[in-house]
Amino acid sequence: MQRGKVKWFNNEKGYGFIEVEGGSDVFVHFTAIQGEGFKTLEEGQEVSFEIVQGNRGPQAANVVKL
């Protein structure tokens, strides 16, 4: 599992990016966020996640808020 901080997340569009220290930013879609109810992330929030290869490159999967 990787760890990072949410760079930004757009609730209306349902996606954003996670900053990884020493690495490239990783795309995150709301469907990758674990948990119940409305799935969103806050700027600066710490998360753990896996990186998978999506249609447009690397993206976050199994995102857990820390």
Rank of each mutant, 00 (worst) to 15 (best):
R56I: 04
G16C: 00
Y15M: 04
G35A: 12
N10A: 08
A32I: 01
E12V: 07
G35H: 07
S48Q: 12
E12K: 15
G14I: 00
Q53G: 10
Q59T: 09
P58F: 08
V64L: 11
E46Y: 06
F38Q: 12
V52G: 10
Y15R: 03
D25H: 05
I51K: 10
G37A: 06
Y15W: 14
A60R: 01
R3G: 12
N55Y: 04
V64D: 07
E36K: 09
G37E: 08
F17Q: 04
A60K: 00
F49L: 12
V28T: 08
V6E: 00
E21L: 09
S24L: 13
E19T: 10
G54A: 10
Q59D: 02
F9S: 02
I18C: 04
E36G: 12
G44Q: 09
V47Q: 00
S48V: 07
E12G: 11
G35T: 06
K5F: 12
V20T: 13
N10Y: 03
K7R: 08
E43S: 11
E21I: 15
E36S: 12
T31W: 02
T31I: 02
G4W: 00
I51L: 12
F30H: 10
F30W: 10
A61F: 07
Q45L: 11
Q34C: 07
G35F: 07
W8L: 03
Q45C: 10
R3I: 10
T40F: 12
N10C: 10
M1Q: 11
Q2D: 09
P58Q: 11
V28R: 00
F27S: 03
E50N: 15
E42A: 14
F30C: 06
I51E: 10
V52D: 06
S24A: 12
G14C: 05
E42R: 13
E19Q: 14
E12S: 14
E46H: 09
V26E: 02
K39F: 03
F49N: 00
E50K: 12
V20F: 06
K5R: 09
K7S: 09
A32Y: 03
F9L: 02
E21R: 14
Q53R: 13
E21N: 14
T31P: 02
E21P: 14
Y15N: 03
D25R: 07
G44F: 05
R56N: 14
V47M: 01
K7G: 05
S48D: 13
V63F: 00
F9D: 00
G16Y: 00
V63M: 02
I51A: 09
L41I: 13
D25F: 03
S24F: 10
N10V: 05
G54I: 03
S48C: 08
K65S: 11
S24N: 13
R56L: 07
V64K: 10
K65I: 15
H29I: 01
T40K: 07
M1L: 08
Q34I: 04
G44S: 10
R3P: 07
A61S: 13
G16F: 00
Q34H: 05
K13V: 08
F30T: 05
E21S: 12
G4Q: 02
K65M: 06
E19C: 14
G54T: 14
E50M: 11
F49Y: 09
G16N: 00
A61M: 14
V20S: 12
T31M: 05
E12I: 03
G54F: 05
V52W: 08
T40E: 10
E36N: 09
E42L: 12
E12T: 15
N11W: 05
V52Q: 13
K13W: 06
G35L: 05
R56G: 06
S48F: 12
G44Y: 07
K65N: 08
V6I: 11
G54R: 08
A61V: 07
V52S: 11
Y15P: 00
E50P: 00
S24C: 10
K7P: 01
N10M: 06
A60W: 00
E42W: 08
V20E: 13
E43T: 15
T40A: 11
R56T: 04
